[in-house]
Design a protein around this nucleic acid. Sequence first.
DNA 1: GCGACAG
DNA 2: ATCTTGTCGC
Length: 230
Amino acid sequence: MQHELLQTNLTLDEAERLQEKYRQIIKDQTGIISKSSDVKKIRWIVGVDVSYYQEKLKEYGRAAAILWDLRFNRFMTQALAKDIITFPYKTGFLGFRECKVMLEAIKKLPETPDLIMCDGHGIIHPRRFGEAVQLGLILNVPTCGIAKNPFIGSSEWKVLKRIRGNKTPILENKEVLGYAVCLNDGMKPVFISVGYKISLNVAVEIALKSSLDHRQPEPLYLADQFSKSE
DNA sequence: GCGACAG
DNA sequence: ATCTTGTCGC
């Protein structure tokens, strides 16, 4: 039996209802990773990304999951999954397209992730329900969103000095939805937000720690490459 | 009202 | 996301 958030035959209205329903359910949850002391206990992090291709007029998604050992900051192994994609692309509903394939790839990994990084937004979303939130909820694993482009909210990211570690908040009325963060010198910032059971500060801390020399954290960079290679 | 809008 | 060559910059 599977989660109703994995249904792929929903109307947009039904999908929106589910987003609102689960937003309420996970509101004010406890047991989140929020302190730097918690970070020391984190070992297995996973970066996931999805690429697309056509076959017989149908659209398919290929998800790559990269298992990364944060203790030694090194690559461990990877897994791929392919699946047909039927849910249409609509801004604000990415999770309904990508969660199922991402989950299939993650299931193939030899370790249970302590944290999953998604190539997309978390609570930087009209209903605070980006795909990182959706994935974390379905798997009951901490997640964060790390997107390459802005979505909602306003920030000064365009004038942010591109120096590793620099960041500027993404705001919507007084509410901090996330941070635009420069992960390496000279590179355009990425947009980091909470997904599930993690604090914003910890998400930023781990993204920085796992960034080597690319715009994205290495697990996500590798996931992007791997998902496109085949 | 119109357009913009993660991947 | 994906279709695609050259080209500007370090």
